[in-house]
Design a protein around this nucleic acid. Structure first.
Lengths: 237, 237
DNA sequence: ACCTGAACACCGTTCAAGT
DNA sequence: ACCTGAACACCGTTCAAGT
């Protein structure tokens, strides 16, 4: 028996070394296979043939693990073809997000639970805002449109982020004394996100996004739209 | 010290007997005070001065506890004044849901995690559908409007329910061989919800709600609306 | 009918130690 | 630098028993 070593090792990746991306990949695979409820640090560790605490060298804690998983997937959202007009491009990006949600059924819950916006998440927001901007919309309207599209941008509700979909302040919820160097770095990577924030700050001296007003804006937009369809004798198909 | 019994008992409700509503009330109070993460069966039990297993006489399990908490609160959504037109009435109901979300910050997560639609939740849906119907909209359009309003109806995304906001099949996800008596009971309590389901079933012989089409409907509705605002030179305030 | 006690099979994470 | 072992302070829930 002992000499019949033809059977492969029972899955734990033979190689000795863990890495952050290896851990994230295994976590995504586990969640895809068995759902987010089954993803525990202990379970993931045993899957990797390693003691639970070994993971903590590559991941700060469980929240960081889940943030990493989200980031990996959002970074892979496919971009629309270059030639498209702004509407088609926005539509394409939103559909790409929705596709990811279908591929990874745990993603919605993960996004809903997430407390920080990772770079890829900010990048996706920035890309959508950029397409709208390309359509000639003012940053003010882009901001409102981001709120209205809301969960469509993710395929789910982004209000999980404490300050709303179109809000663009840094991950920290506080007004936050802005470090100019940090702001410059943000503006470099997420120009539209920052532009919206500046536009909002300029418009309302408080600077904060008025989430109540945004909610009402979208609600009335939808009620108007539905009303018009009704008046026009809309029917499906 | 011992005789100085002027201090009140250290909170555990003095009275001997637990009840379902007492348990739910304490759970809501605990979640209001310390958040949903702090709500555990063990913690709640100790708050009530009782052993954890005592709760299981009044609540099937933790999911049932949370469903009960939701149901209690949704049942208390205030109804709009009777005189209002349909738009104002819909608006009022949606704002009432949003108010509850502000009052109970844990409610959004609870709703997102919930797997079953409780009577009060169905009642709220039915009431919103009823207001739209009162506006003269076809059930087909009411159905689409419910999807479009989506998370606005709750103040959050209802896609947590596996089959979408406007979907109206019974809590079980399966096509489910319909028990006529059960359907009649449903139709009695939730006439509009049932009417939408029948309308949908009639329109698409499969009977199931096409969530992809509903998603696209809302997305295009919003893109159209934003587009029009832009063309009309919209600005905020 | 309602509550208890002890137990089972789990969690995330800290801390001190090994190599 | 990276992984381990043992421990801490928790979970939800079953099962058999008490009153």
């Amino acid at each position: 028996m002992y000499t019949m070593s033809s059977e492969p090792p029972p899955t734990p990746r033979a190689a000795g070394r863990l890495s952050r991306s290896g851990v994230l990949e295994a976590a995504v695979a586990l969640a895809d296979r068995e759902g987010l409820e089954s993803l525990s640090m202990r379970r993931l560790a045993s899957e990797l043939g390693v003691v639970p605490m070994a993971l903590y060298k590559h991941v700060a804690d469980k929240d960081d693990l889940v943030a990493g998983m989200i980031d990996q997937i959002v970074a892979d959202y496919r971009a629309p073809q270059p030639g498209l007009d702004w509407r088609a491009a926005v539509r394409g990006r939103i559909m790409a997000a929705r596709d990811a949600l279908h591929e990874h059924p745990w993603l919605r819950s993960a996004l809903e639970r997430a407390t920080q916006r990772t770079p890829a998440v900010l990048g996706h927001m920035d890309a959508v805002a950029g397409e709208l901007r390309r359509g000639g919309l003012s940053y003010d309207l882009v901001h409102h449109a981001m709120h209205a599209l809301g969960h469509r941008i993710w395929g789910f509700s982004p209000e999980a982020f404490s300050d709303g979909a179109g809000s663009t302040t840094a991950p920290d919820a506080e007004p936050a004394p802005v470090d100019p160097a940090q702001l410059a770095a943000m503006a470099e990577r997420y120009p539209h996100v920052v532009a919206i924030a500046l536009d909002t700050a300029q418009r309302a001296p408080g600077g904060a996004c008025d989430t109540e007003a945004e909610f009402a804006f979208t609600l009335d937009l939808l009620l108007d739209a539905v009303s018009s369809l009704h008046a026009a004798g809309w029917r499906s198909r």
